[in-house]
Each structure stands twice: as structure tokens, then as C-alpha cells.
Amino acid sequence: MSDLLRPSIRIPAVCAELLTHVRQAPPLTHCITNAVVTGFTANVLLAVGASPAMVDIVGEAGVFARIASGLLINLGTPSPEQRAASLEAAAGANAAATPWVLDPVAVGALPVRTALAADLVGMRPTAVRGNASEILALAGSGAGGRGVDALDDSDAALGAARSLATRFGAVVAVSGAVDLITDGTRVIRIANGDPLLTRVTGGGCALGALMAAFLGAARDHDADALEAVSAATLVYTLAAEHAARVADGPGSFAVGLLDALAGIDPADVTAEARVDENLGHVEEEAK
């Protein structure tokens, strides 16, 4: 890690504030997500204090995106109706200035979702979340991974993430052993988390929904999109650490993650965060 990075004080503080706001005024979080993870995603949002709504029907998705606090579009199982609903919801969110997150699951390797992801990223999401292989593929720098599995680490996708952020005005979050979040200039790295997150179906997908919730909460408070996405990542990965301490394996971890999200305290965030923040010298860091 570059010596241009320093421990971040701002991100844990913003995270603690936004976590409090999420619980005091639950953001209505509109999710168009894949069939495998719908229940888990809703439970993650409920556990942290947000209000989930799984609205993925053509004719309703655009309407609901206009009234939601935040929107997630996840391409895990893109049926024909869900593909149309995703485009409708993105247009509705843009019309109402609703922040939205694109999760381009398994792009690069599979043609239908790859084409859809290209259309959606062109609609300028507030944030894009994926593993390194997905971010590389979305930026045109790689062929994707094996489905949802990443074949690259997060730092391998830094250039691609910066490119996407600059071209489309989005915050780009790359999930990995160390999560990397950038707006094209600033770079945040979060080293919290636990490998058991990769052993639970929906571990990454639910994080995208949490980002949408925190972006919704940030609209009415003093936090920008980079800070909101980083805050969601920090809450989620820190909760994973708490859950892993008492888990016997993936099954008890999944249940424990919900309990940890419900029980995590803003003071835990500021005390236990492992966050480093680039000062804006991205070109020097890349050398």
C-alpha cells in the first residue's frame, strides 16, 4: 500500500453518523435483484434498519424508483421482464434524482447481462459495485470471472475502477479481501471483513442493497456518494467480523451476520474501522 495513504478519520465518523440516520429514518430501498438472494437481501436491509421493497415489474419499477430513497439494480438473474424493469427503474431514478447502484453480476463472461450492463452504466448510476473481474469486464479491460467468482484482486481493478468513475460520474466499489472504493480521484481502502462472506449466497449482492440504503440516507445529510458507499461497506464488513467470531461455519455465520448488523453500534465503527484514504494523488500512487 502506498505511503501516500493514511488512516481515514472522516470515513468512520461519516459511517457512524449515517448508521444512526438509517435507523432513525429508515430509507425506502428499492431492490431489483436476483432470485437467489431476494430474501437474504431484504433481511440484511431490515437488520441494519432500512426498509426494503422488491419491485421488479414493468409498469411499477419506474414509478417506485421515483419515490424510493435509493435503488439497487442487480443483474444476477436477468429475466426478460427484469431487464426491462431495470431500464425503466434507472430512468425513473434519474428523473427523480434517486441515487442508484448497479451491480453487474457475472458481466464479461455472459452476453445478455453484459449488453444490459453496458446500457445501464451509460445511464450514469450513482455507484457501481462488483468484484474485480466484473469491474474489469465492465470497463472493457477483462473477460470477467467464473460467474460470480473473481479471478482478480481489488487493486488489479484500480485503473478500471477509476476509468469507469471518470467516464460515467459514478463511485466504483471493488469488493475483495480489501475493498476499494473510488470516485476517480479519491481512493478508499477498507480492510475489515471475513472470508466467510464468500461462503454465503448473496454476500456481495446484499452489500449493493446496503449501499443504496446509505446513499438514500446521505441525500439529507452531509455526506457525498463516495463517503456513503464507503460507510455501507464498512458497516457490512465490520458486522461480518463480529458474526465470524461466534460462527461455527457458513450457516451460523449467515444468521449471525443479520444479528451483527442489527447490533452494531456507531461506537464500534469508529473504534474498529481499518480504513485508509488516498489524498488525491492517484497518478503518483499508480506508478
Rank of each mutant, 00 (worst) to 15 (best):
Met1Glu: 04
Ser2Asn: 12
Leu5Pro: 01
Ser8Leu: 07
Pro12Leu: 10
Cys15Glu: 03
Cys15Asn: 05
Ala16Leu: 06
Glu17His: 13
Leu18Thr: 02
Leu18Asn: 08
Val22Gln: 03
Arg23Leu: 10
Arg23Ser: 10
Pro26Tyr: 00
Pro27Phe: 08
Thr29Tyr: 06
His30Arg: 09
Thr33Val: 10
Phe40Asn: 00
Val44Arg: 00
Leu46Pro: 00
Ala47Asp: 09
Ala47Asn: 08
Val48Phe: 01
Val48Asn: 04
Ser51Lys: 10
Pro52Gln: 06
Val55Arg: 03
Glu60Ala: 14
Glu60Pro: 06
Ala61Pro: 01
Ala61Leu: 04
Gly62Phe: 13
Gly62Ile: 04
Gly62Trp: 06
Ala65Met: 07
Arg66Met: 13
Ser69Tyr: 10
Gly70Asn: 11
Gly70Gln: 04
Leu72Ala: 09
Asn74Asp: 10
Arg83Tyr: 03
Arg83Phe: 09
Leu87Val: 11
Ala89Leu: 03
Ala90Asn: 07
Ala91Ser: 15
Gly92Asp: 06
Gly92Asn: 02
Ala96Arg: 13
Ala96Tyr: 12
Thr98Phe: 08
Trp100Ser: 06
Val101Met: 10
Leu102Trp: 00
Val105Met: 00
Ala106Pro: 03
Val107Ala: 04
Gly108Trp: 03
Arg113Ser: 07
Leu116Phe: 13
Asp119Ser: 14
Asp119Met: 05
Arg124His: 15
Pro125Asp: 10
Thr126Arg: 07
Thr126Pro: 09
Ala127Phe: 09
Val128Leu: 14
Val128Ile: 15
Arg129Leu: 13
Arg129Gly: 14
Asn131Asp: 09
Ile135Gln: 01
Ile135Tyr: 03
Leu138Arg: 01
Gly142Cys: 12
Ala143His: 15
Gly145Met: 05
Val148Tyr: 01
Ala150Pro: 04
Asp153Tyr: 11
Ser154Lys: 02
Ser154His: 06
Ala161Trp: 06
Ala161Cys: 12
Arg162Ser: 12
Ala165Ser: 15
Phe168Cys: 07
Ala170Thr: 15
Ala170Ile: 02
Val171Thr: 11
Val172Asn: 12
Ala173Ile: 04
Val174Asp: 00
Val174Ala: 01
Ser175Arg: 05
Ala177Gly: 08
Asp179Gln: 13
Asp179Gly: 01
Ile181Val: 15
Ile181Lys: 04
Thr182Phe: 11
Arg186Val: 13
Ile190Arg: 03
Asn192Glu: 09
Asp194Pro: 02
Leu197Met: 15
Leu197Ile: 14
Gly203Arg: 05
Cys205Ala: 15
Leu207Lys: 03
Ala209Thr: 12
Leu210Glu: 06
Met211Gln: 04
Ala212Ser: 14
Ala213Ile: 10
Ala213Ser: 09
Ala217Tyr: 02
Ala218Ser: 14
Ala223Trp: 05
Glu227Tyr: 14
Glu227Lys: 11
Ala228His: 00
Val229Arg: 00
Ser230Pro: 13
Thr233Gln: 02
Leu234Met: 13
Leu234Trp: 03
Val235Cys: 15
Leu238Thr: 14
Ala240Pro: 11
Glu241His: 12
Ala243His: 08
Pro250Cys: 11
Pro250Ala: 07
Gly251Asn: 01
Ser252Gln: 05
Val255Trp: 08
Gly256Asn: 08
Leu257Asn: 02
Leu257Met: 14
Gly263Thr: 09
Asp265Ile: 05
Ala267Asn: 10
Asp268Gln: 07
Ala271Asn: 11
Ala271Gly: 07
Ala271Ile: 13
Ala271Trp: 03
Asp276Arg: 07
Asp276Pro: 00
Asp276His: 13
Glu277Pro: 01
Glu277Thr: 06
Lys287Gln: 11
Lys287Ser: 04
